[in-house]
Design a protein around this nucleic acid. Sequence first.
DNA 1: TATTGTTATACTCTATAACTATA
DNA 2: TATAGTTATAGAGTATAACAATA
Lengths: 160, 160
Amino acid sequence: MSSERPQHQTAAAEMTISRLEDLIGYHLRRASVFDLQGAAAALEPANTRTVPMSVLLSIVEAPGISSAEICRALGMQRANIVSILAELEERGFFLRETDAADQRIQRLFPSRRGQEEAARWLGLITKHERNMLCRLSLDEQMELRRLLAKIWQEDGPQQS
Amino acid sequence: MSSERPQHQTAAAEMTISRLEDLIGYHLRRASVFDLQGAAAALEPANTRTVPMSVLLSIVEAPGISSAEICRALGMQRANIVSILAELEERGFFLRETDAADQRIQRLFPSRRGQEEAARWLGLITKHERNMLCRLSLDEQMELRRLLAKIWQEDGPQQS
DNA sequence: TATTGTTATACTCTATAACTATA
DNA sequence: TATAGTTATAGAGTATAACAATA
């Protein structure tokens, strides 16, 4: 029988995965759960979790960002950021300022305390990641991050 | 001041991560969520989800496995497998057989239909993974799986 | 008509505690 | 006492629908 596919398509590329352990998605989930548990433990002394940390970091890294922009960047629903922002605001980590040109938008600016706390949280998370990744070389860590980003990130600015 | 650390420890190894995008855990979560959404969509026509698929695959790959053993292998709680097994059992994908030597244990054996369905589900998931990983070479896919497994898996049998 | 921030609500996934039967 | 299977329940995290204010 004649193949419709080009010769360079190997059998391996056509093969159906046959075991759970062969699934990259399975290892992705296991590794992510493993990380999340360690990250939660690492952030407990700071009385926060990974999502509020990501939200505060978004504000610190991009002062003046809006909540809708944070949601788009982090891939979360607008409805779900409300309680997280309320919590961070109550702890005095940022201030809201209505945009002068568009009164629908609240621009979020980190306070001094928010910047300090974000740095502290990053320190806790850094220690956790060093622990989690202790079996990987720095080159392997960089390669892992590159491959993961390639999976979920939209194609960056085309350079053709 | 004198350092307590060996000279080969570079500054990079000591550095605190400063941005969300630098966190491997962040990319792990984003990639895992991306995968889970695609996997859920891929399995929808088969009317199942990732966890029931993993459970059925565990039974097909190791006939006679118990539910407690599945839970330990997949890192899930015994309480949470009950409804999943009930669902798979109702669809006729496996049979329970009380262990003759220890009547606490139910040994689970895949039915013919269960084996066929597991193969079908693997086919759907394979297509999803091929799609998800289309930007990675086969070498990169294998490297990614190796690095992910190194993160969450306990140290294998020592070969010293 | 579309977007922002918001409320209310539901659903999935996971975690804990307690029970029974067996060992 | 320890484990297997089970029930009930509670907590995260996430999803949808709808609303008022604004563009």
